[in-house]
């Protein structure tokens, strides 16, 4: 199908975009890379009155080092992240996970901010940001707010973002040599939405400390398995009792069945992906 008709604005500055967004005259939908929104419009699941195209706002495309963080502008595309030396040096979890986010042609358009603002339950990025303990900087005409990834994603396509706000940038803590990261997803075709996936961050292993185990594509949004983290923190990686206990806690997560898998299958797959990701947590700095 084709998208229904809409008005179109393509501002060149962030300020112009925020002014338009704060106007009550017309229901305005920001357009980032369009790799999820355009299909939704073509399928007529989304029918915005006006599209606010952010693709010409150069000030939202940057990757920079800021002390112990890497700041990534909302309009940075996945392909750009994959090519970035800063990302390769400082966010090894991205390097593991990005090749699994859709296909090359999609990664050439899709943006980090778009994925964050949309909050698709099957998307990798919300889970990655939670596993990395990242924060999300949002702006409106009159204010800026910093929201932790833990508090930002509220449910299926539901975030803490207000209708007059845009995602401005993402702040990710840089990895240090003791940190370990893991990522694993199961998909029928490489690059398709996962049946189940997990992103893991740890400040150390042997023993595990500050574990963050975040699943995607199993529930209404990226979900931290806090009880599993508690069962493993302070334990060694060869402690099979602790691992068994952690796996058991996964049955308490709130699984959403979809066209591909029942809740029981999702629970089983969550156990599989967590074990596989834990078994090959890799060093932080490459």
């Amino acid at each position: 199908m084709k998208a229904p008709d809409f008005q179109y604005q393509c501002p060149r500055t962030l300020n112009d975009a925020l002014v338009q967004l704060s106007s009550d005259d017309v229901e305005c939908q920001p357009l980032a890379g369009g790799q999820s929104l355009m299909p939704m419009m073509n399928l007529r699941l989304a029918q915005p009155e006006m599209l606010l195209d952010l693709n010409n706002i150069a000030e939202l495309s940057f990757i920079r080092e800021a002390g112990s963080h890497i700041e990534i502008g909302a309009m940075v595309r996945y392909a750009t992240l994959l090519e970035s030396k800063l990302i390769h040096h400082h966010i090894p979890l991205f390097v593991q996970a990005l090749p699994h986010i859709a296909h090359a042609a999609i990664r050439n358009r899709g943006t980090i901010g778009g994925s964050v603002a949309l909050a698709d339950p099957a998307a990798e990025m919300p889970a990655l940001l939670k596993a990395l303990d990242a924060t999300i900087e949002v702006v409106s005409k009159s204010s800026t707010r910093t929201i932790s990834a833990d508090d930002f994603f509220l449910g299926t396509y539901e975030t803490a973002l207000r209708s007059d706000e845009l995602v401005h940038s993402i702040k990710v803590p840089v990895a240090i040599s003791e940190h370990r990261y893991g990522f694993y997803e199961l998909a029928r075709r490489h690059g398709d939405y996962a049946l189940a996936g997990v992103a893991i961050g740890a400040h150390s292993v042997e023993p595990y400390t500050n574990l963050r185990i975040v699943f995607f594509s199993i529930s209404d949004c990226a979900v931290r398995a806090v009880e599993a983290e508690d069962a493993l923190n302070g334990k060694l990686s060869n402690d099979s009792t602790a691992l068994g206990n952690a796996l058991e806690t996964l049955s308490k997560l709130n699984y959403y069945e979809d066209a591909n898998a029942s809740s029981a299958t999702k629970n089983h797959l969550a156990r599989v992906v967590m074990q596989r990701a834990l078994s090959k947590l890799s060093t932080a700095v490459s």
Partner: peptide, 13 residues
Amino acid sequence: GVMVRGCLMLAVQ
């Protein structure tokens, strides 16, 4: 110079 989906980009873009 980069490959994209022609159905996921608007002509105006």
